[in-house]
Each structure stands twice: as structure tokens, then as C-alpha cells.
Amino acid sequence: MNYICPVCGHDGLEESAYNEYKLPSFEICSCCRFQFGDDDDVEITEGVFLSREEAHAVYRKKWIKDGAEIFQPEYYPLEFQVNGRVIKQHLVKQLKNINIDITK
């Protein structure tokens, strides 16, 4: 069973990003390279951290802006990538898995 990445919407995680106790898996998404339990621990000022959802949104925005580069293209369907990047049409569909619409 594959799980959906809450950052990029890719359905390629081997385990849930967070378990029922909200503990991170420390898995790295093969699509966007986000590591749960590491990249979501963002301190904005001393002792003040972004929420996980905010960290996901910030990371996602930068990842898309930088061209949606695939971390491990060998594990990502070839028909949905060009030059190691998610093709726009599929990216729109993939992000719908997490209720993100970039067409607006």
C-alpha cells in the first residue's frame, strides 16, 4: 500500500508521513525530497516553529517554483516526468490528492 505525501501529493510513500500519534516517519518522499520529522521542524525565531502544515506549504511553494524536480526519478513513473521534473499536467493532478489547486 502506498501513502500520499502531504507536501507534493505523490502517492509513493511506503508508510504514512505521520502515525496515529502524529509522530513522523522520517521517510523521504521520492518525488519532492521532503523528509518527515526533519524538514517540518522549521524554527522561525528562537523557540517559535512553523506548524507542520505551514512548513509543508512553504516547502511545496519553493519546490514548485524551482520546477518540481523529482528527487529519485528512477522511482517515479516515466510517463509523468520530463528531464527529471514532474510534468505540469500531472503535477496539477498530483496536487489534487492533497486538495491543492495551482490552476487558480
Rank of each mutant, 00 (worst) to 15 (best):
C5Q: 07
P6M: 06
C8L: 07
G9F: 05
D11I: 04
G12I: 12
G12H: 09
E15D: 13
N19S: 00
Y21D: 03
Y21R: 05
P24F: 05
S25K: 07
F26E: 11
F26H: 14
E27L: 04
I28Y: 11
C32K: 10
C32G: 12
C32E: 13
R33S: 15
R33Y: 11
F36T: 09
F36D: 02
G37W: 05
D40Y: 12
V42F: 13
V42P: 00
V42M: 11
E43R: 15
E46F: 08
G47W: 09
L50I: 01
S51V: 01
R52L: 03
E53K: 10
E54S: 11
H56N: 10
H56I: 00
V58L: 14
K62H: 10
I64A: 02
G67E: 11
G67T: 09
E69F: 09
F71Q: 05
E74C: 09
E74M: 09
Y76E: 03
P77K: 10
L78D: 13
E79H: 10
F80G: 00
V82E: 15
G84E: 09
R85N: 12
Q89R: 10
V92L: 07
V92T: 12
K96S: 14
I98K: 12
N99L: 11
I100R: 00
I102T: 13
T103P: 02
T103E: 15
T103H: 03
K104H: 14
